[in-house]
């Protein structure tokens, strides 16, 4: 089996102008690879939510995309406040979004649950005061 395709994207915290560009580029790449439309859509939703969480809560981060003929994998790493109670954060509707973020249409507390729903596998590691890491996997076919 050949080497996987891999590409990394930088995401800036609190930069709402750039927000969403990593997801857009990732989608384009998956379409160039001929990945099934349903998978593209699931990856799109998950990447967007992960990217927005960096923009809203962290200082900076990276999204690393890896594609093999079998899986699409996203490794999302950020430097930021971290999540103290992951089980709580994973609950639908739980959110610490500020009123300003809610004004912008975020803060429904649906991001992480949506990532989980759309992925085939989700692993979260987080250290308070340091940052958060998501490993999100999607099976192709």
């Amino acid at each position: 089996m050949g080497k996987p395709f891999s590409h990394s994207f930088i995401v800036e915290g609190r930069n709402f102008v750039q927000a969403g560009t990593a997801s857009t580029k990732i989608k384009t790449m998956l379409k160039e690879l001929g990945i099934d439309g349903g998978v593209v859509r699931r990856v799109a939703i998950a990447t967007y939510e992960a990217e927005m969480n960096i923009v809203m809560y962290a200082n900076s981060g990276t999204v690393v995309l890896e594609v093999t003929p079998e899986v699409v994998r996203l490794n999302v790493n950020d430097r930021g406040p971290g999540i103290s109670d992951i089980d709580l954060a994973m609950q639908e509707g739980y959110s610490t979004a500020t009123p300003e973020m809610r004004e912008m249409g975020f803060g429904a507390g649906m991001g992480l649950p949506n990532i989980k729903k759309n992925a085939d596998d989700l692993r979260i590691k987080s250290t308070v005061g340091e940052g958060t890491n998501l490993e999100i996997t999607f099976r192709i076919n």
Binding site: M1, F5, M29, G34, I140
Partner: peptide, 18 residues
């Protein structure tokens, strides 16, 4: 009418995209 992938074979497409 999705855009043509870089290659019909996924492994090849992966190599080409890289």
């Amino acid at each position: 009418h999705p855009v043509q992938p870089l290659d019909q074979d996924v492994s090849m497409a992966i190599q080409k995209l890289q």
